[in-house]
Design a protein around this nucleic acid. Sequence first.
DNA 1: AAATTAATTTAGTCTAGCCTAAAAATTTAG
DNA 2: CTAAATTTTTAGGCTAGACTAAATTAATTT
Lengths: 218, 218
Amino acid sequence: MLSYSEENHLKAIFHLSVNNESGVSTNSIASKMNSKAPSVTEMLKKLSEKDLVVYKKYQGVLLTDFGRKTALSVIRKHRLWEVFLVEKLNFKWDEVHDIAEQLEHIKSEKLTNELDKFLDYPTKDPHGDPIPNPAGFIKYTAKLVLSDLLIGETGKFIGVKDSSSTFLKYLDKREISLGSNIKVIHKEEFDESIHIGLVETNLSISVKSAANIYVTKL
Amino acid sequence: MLSYSEENHLKAIFHLSVNNESGVSTNSIASKMNSKAPSVTEMLKKLSEKDLVVYKKYQGVLLTDFGRKTALSVIRKHRLWEVFLVEKLNFKWDEVHDIAEQLEHIKSEKLTNELDKFLDYPTKDPHGDPIPNPAGFIKYTAKLVLSDLLIGETGKFIGVKDSSSTFLKYLDKREISLGSNIKVIHKEEFDESIHIGLVETNLSISVKSAANIYVTKL
DNA sequence: AAATTAATTTAGTCTAGCCTAAAAATTTAG
DNA sequence: CTAAATTTTTAGGCTAGACTAAATTAATTT
């Protein structure tokens, strides 16, 4: 039985592994966990004891298959609960993260699988992130960021990179929502802002925003 | 922000207060919590600091209004989640307790209230226990135990005193379920067993069981 | 390649929550 | 109304998980 802290560390390592095939650093984990390096070192020793990670001093850390599966089970729960909150309890996509952070630690396989069934086996959470299946398999969708589209190209908005409540609320205000088809009309050289067409309406957003919006080319 | 342990102690004190208007003993709390007296003493000091209980050494403990409200908020969540598990996720009434023990600590008033709405404002949990309203008000129903009914009297089964999974499964097997109308046909003097009529069918149960079934006289 | 800088680990401390054993207070009984 | 029994509290210890400060290892720079 893993503690919340152990599960959270596994999750952090999982997310950091995406860009760090060779090993995740102690500091990067500490920064993601809002803790300090010595706390992480101590935890890595414990996770290593339990065969959840492969850890050698000063060498960074990587998940074992078992650790990866465990992390994915937590992520699965997190994302299923997010769907539940939005689909069934009228939450907005910017309100669900903190509650899902709590719910993801509830221990009951039956609960997770019944929830999955109740939600009719969703494949994406409210931010467009894929939901792992019970075996820990994740179906990744090819994606690029909006700012990578060229003028004249159109993409379908399929996810956010920055899922901060601030950014999500901003997207709401601009009426840019998951599933929208976005066409790049023009790129302003001066301030690098990007003029986009949203089905019918045109609007302009910053490169920073555009770099946080995942799209698939149409 | 209260810890799980603090919330659990408040809940235990609340439940024990029902039969102990004058003050709940350290040992009784320890036994309900599956812990030891010194751990309870320590916790009582902390809860007292936070004005959740009134505690004087060697004198037993009672909840303050604030403590009572806090306990009821936890109980409310516990029972709402139980309803959710049974009504929406196909759980049986004997499977929900342990999961609700985890879910009851999730912190989000909005979540609780939206869940309440989603479940259409249930007033009882799957074991017949009343669900406190958001203000912490509980509507108690007059009830007596089945073994208190006299021969010839009929009662409606409205709750269980012993909600152990063993007993609940036993009731399932005997096909005695919440809402059944139960008529006492005969009481066996020899072994004190009670013959009851369940709408049409007649069956016999032990006094022990009958003392764990709450009914209202019809 | 040595020296400086940065990252990581070790050492030692703290708090929450639990425990056992011993002491103190209260209750019960003779 | 004392003496024994019971209950409760205190004292002291343990573990998990966090921290700061110091030491060590690795990486970078000159």
